[in-house]
């Protein structure tokens, strides 16, 4: 009798071990949602490459100070690429390095990562593009290379880019967007989209007006902005707005005045 009980227990133990053993792998494979985790800051190597990577990070987080020549507004790279370019669904750098060179409909060319970054400077930063072999771009590319350590080349990872939000049932409405904006966004970004300053430094980025991104930026696309808002805003409470609210807010923000798109080169 006792032996039987022991055996039963063993049996179940083995079965549960099997299930337990298998489940993480299976979950990862089926959901495909294992988010890549980039290396920690401490693992930046020494030497010239490490210096370049660190410089890239400085430019990334404090763009005006370290690459002010190319910046025409109050944003930094980190304004959109949250957590120093690490946050999934906020166009993380680790999701970008591996998929360039890539053909883009935007300019009908195969773009290298460096050329893509030039686009960021021209449109999102409303500034001028540094040359592809300028120290600024090299440092930023090196930073994304280092952050992508272990990510596969040429494969789009889960969490790369922005969330592709399915179009809403009701067409995005800037007027309801305004209400949501005033309730959920204005605290930080201001009633007039002006962002907020702290002792002369930009603390919250302006989301429209002369100091925000221009009409050539990716965020001027309502769908992209809605995907970003849905996953990331309000900061630390991502995924708390409904899809429709995210679309409406994005439509409202993009309906506000902002600098024109610079003429195509």
């Amino acid at each position: 009798m006792l032996g039987k009980t022991v055996k039963g227990v063993l049996w179940w133990a083995c079965l549960s071990a099997l299930v337990f053993c298998d489940s993480p792998g299976a979950g990862v494979a089926s959901a495909g949602e294992a988010i890549f985790s980039p290396p920690s800051e401490q693992s930046i190597p020494g030497g010239s490459l490490g210096d370049l990577v660190r410089k890239g990070e400085e430019i990334f987080t404090n763009t005006k100070k370290y690459a002010g020549h190319y910046v025409g507004n109050d944003l930094t790279c980190e304004s959109c690429h949250l957590n120093r370019g690490r946050k999934a669904y906020a166009a993380p750098l680790w999701g970008a390095y591996g998929i360039y060179p890539r053909y883009r409909l935007k300019n009908h060319k195969v773009n290298s990562l460096a050329e893509r970054m030039q686009g960021c400077f021209r449109f999102s930063m409303n500034g001028t593009a540094p040359a592809v072999d300028s120290p600024t771009v090299k440092a930023l590319v090196a930073y994304s290379y280092w952050m992508s350590r272990g990510a596969p080349v040429g494969v789009k990872l889960p969490g790369a880019g922005m969330l592709h939000l399915t179009p809403p049932s009701r067409s995005p409405d800037p007027f309801s967007g305004k209400k949501v904006y005033e309730a959920r966004c204005a605290l930080c970004h201001g009633l007039h989209g002006q962002g907020r300053m702290s002792r002369g430094e930009t603390a919250f980025p302006p989301v429209w007006g002369g100091k925000s991104f221009n009409k050539g930026a990716g965020f001027y696309n309502v769908g992209k902005l809605a995907g970003f808002i849905k996953m990331n805003m309000p900061l630390s409470k991502g995924d708390s707005l409904s899809d429709q609210d995210a679309w409406d807010v994005a439509a409202y923000v993009d309906s506000q005045p902002r600098p024109e798109k610079p003429a195509v080169k």
Partner: peptide, 12 residues
Amino acid sequence: IFWLSRGAPIGH
């Protein structure tokens, strides 16, 4: 060269 490396882990 990028294409030939499709799937190779970066930095390894």
